[in-house]
Computed example of a mutant assay.
Amino acid sequence: MEVCNGRTLRQLIGPVGSNYLRRALPPTWVWAVLALLLALALHGTLPALAATAVIGSAVVVHWPRRGLLWPGHWRMLGLLVLGVAAWVPEPDALSDWFEHGLSVALLSLSAASVLAYVLQARRLAMRLLAAADTMDEQRLLQLLPEEAAAHALRWRDGDDSRAQELAVVMHLAVMHAALAPHVRGAGRRHRV
Rank of each mutant, 00 (worst) to 15 (best):
A121I: 10
W74L: 09
Q120K: 15
L141A: 07
P71K: 08
R122E: 07
V114N: 03
P64S: 08
L115F: 12
A105H: 05
R191F: 01
F98H: 11
G83I: 03
M170G: 01
M76I: 11
V168K: 12
S18N: 13
L49K: 13
S95W: 05
Q138K: 13
G72F: 10
A130F: 08
R75P: 09
L153S: 08
L119D: 02
A186K: 07
L79V: 01
A32T: 13
W70I: 02
L38W: 05
L69M: 12
A125C: 03
S95D: 04
H100E: 06
S161H: 06
W31H: 06
L166G: 03
Y20E: 00
L94R: 15
P181G: 08
T52S: 14
P15D: 14
L12I: 03
P47G: 06
Q138C: 14
L102P: 10
A116N: 05
H176C: 10
E137P: 10
L115E: 04
E2G: 11
A35F: 00
A112H: 11
R191V: 08
R7T: 01
L36N: 11
V54W: 03
A173L: 06
E147G: 12
V81L: 15
H43C: 15
M1T: 14
R23L: 08
C4P: 01
A131T: 09
L109A: 15
R184E: 13
A32V: 09
A85G: 00
A152E: 01
L172V: 05
H100T: 15
L40A: 14
L82S: 14
V114M: 10
P145S: 14
R188N: 02
E2Q: 12
Q142L: 15
G17M: 04
A150C: 06
V169E: 06
V168F: 10
A105F: 05
T45P: 03
P181H: 08
A130E: 15
L37P: 00
A112R: 09
T28G: 12
L102D: 07
A51R: 12
P91C: 02
S113C: 05
L46A: 05
L42H: 13
G56E: 00
L129P: 02
A53N: 11
L129D: 12
A48K: 08
W63H: 10
L12G: 02
A150Y: 03
A41R: 07
L34C: 01
W74P: 04
L102A: 14
S108I: 09
L153T: 11
V174L: 01
E165D: 13
G187D: 03
R23Q: 14
A111Y: 10
G158I: 09
H100D: 07
P145T: 07
N19G: 12
A131D: 04
S161M: 02
T8P: 04
